[in-house]
Design a protein around this nucleic acid. Structure first.
Ligand SMILES: [Mn+2]
Ligand SMILES: [Mn+2]
Ligand SMILES: [Zn+2]
Ligand SMILES: [Zn+2]
Lengths: 162, 162
DNA sequence: TAGGTTATTAGGAATGATTACTATTATAAA
DNA sequence: TTTATAATAGTAATCATTCCTAATAACCTA
């Protein structure tokens, strides 16, 4: 599986990888746990987390850690951005091409201005999933999404939803 | 303080705001708690969290919620990006101008492609603070930062640190 | 300036996702 | 096979954040 690390391929690890790869929906650890348990009823949560980390460190899957929402796992390891629902944490793929050039230039520029060593970046879009858009409608004003904005986008940027 | 919400200005709220505004170092809730406690020794953690949320929702401060690190608070409410240390979670300001045009265009483009309602975005740079750069040197290879990369940048982007 | 309404507090308990621990088991190499 | 040790199940621990509630303090109005 990975030469230098002496990893072994166990049934548990195999099933976890399969579940993540067959789901294009950015599952959480407990969703993965539920699905794997159908086949391996005695698997434990610790095993799920440990393997997700290992699989991610080997590059077989990607670990997504949005701010203000729990981590999720992506079987698609190609470079792409995500939209995070600010209410329920659900994650969708952003169907736009990566800004590699722009952002790499930014990283280089920043590297010369800061005392930090720059290794990469994260860009995520913030919004509402279709489901939460619906629910939004019958909420009192003071729980409306614009009240959430400040807490959810780092830059306070706002935009009319489509 | 805020007309529609009937907020009151208490000593606790005042002190918390003052601490956040006088510190340009993106403090965590417990760091703020420690500092406020010098003046108000009986203040409680719940009060700190509640007020930080309220102050952020009023736009007096900004709440930063990087993935994989605890939340921090910024007295500088102008639009700017941040560098997050992937080891200790410390946050520094990125001294580069915001990508407003580029990213607003992206948001608009994305809005037409996804079923999500897009409200904004978060961009953060990931790296090592000066302190952790030092510590890095005498670490065994398998704990070196490149091992952390996959877990920390959503896009797996890599770059030589300066 | 006092009284009344209610936002806010202190203190402590609860939450919940994630991580750590450990005796036992399964994997892969020889 | 035998053997070394990576990995597991089950469970306990962590720890940042949120929740709860009786008591208090801000602010409005008379
Ligand atoms: Mn994806
Ligand atoms: Mn800042
Ligand atoms: Zn949602
Ligand atoms: Zn650091």
């Amino acid at each position: 599986m990975n030469q230098e690390k002496n990893y072994r391929m166990t049934h548990q690890r195999e099933m976890i990888l399969e579940v993540v790869q067959k789901n294009h929906s950015h599952l959480t650890a407990d969703e993965i746990y539920d699905r794997v348990r159908k086949k391996l009823p005695r698997i434990s949560m610790g095993t799920v987390y440990r393997n997700l980390d290992i699989l991610a460190s080997c590059g077989f899957i990607k670990k997504l850690q949005p701010g203000y929402a729990q981590m999720r796992f992506d079987g698609n390891t190609r470079d792409h951005y995500h939209v995070v629902c600010m209410r329920c944490g659900k994650i969708g793929d952003a169907q736009i091409e990566p800004l590699d050039n722009t952002l790499e230039n930014l990283e280089n520029a920043l590297g010369n201005l800061t005392s930090y060593g720059i290794f990469g970046h994260n860009l995520e879009f913030v919004g509402l999933c279709p489901n939460c858009m619906e629910l939004e409608k019958d909420l009192p004003d003071d729980q409306q999404t614009n009240q959430l904005m400040m807490e959810v986008t780092e830059d306070g940027s706002q935009r009319k939803p489509n």
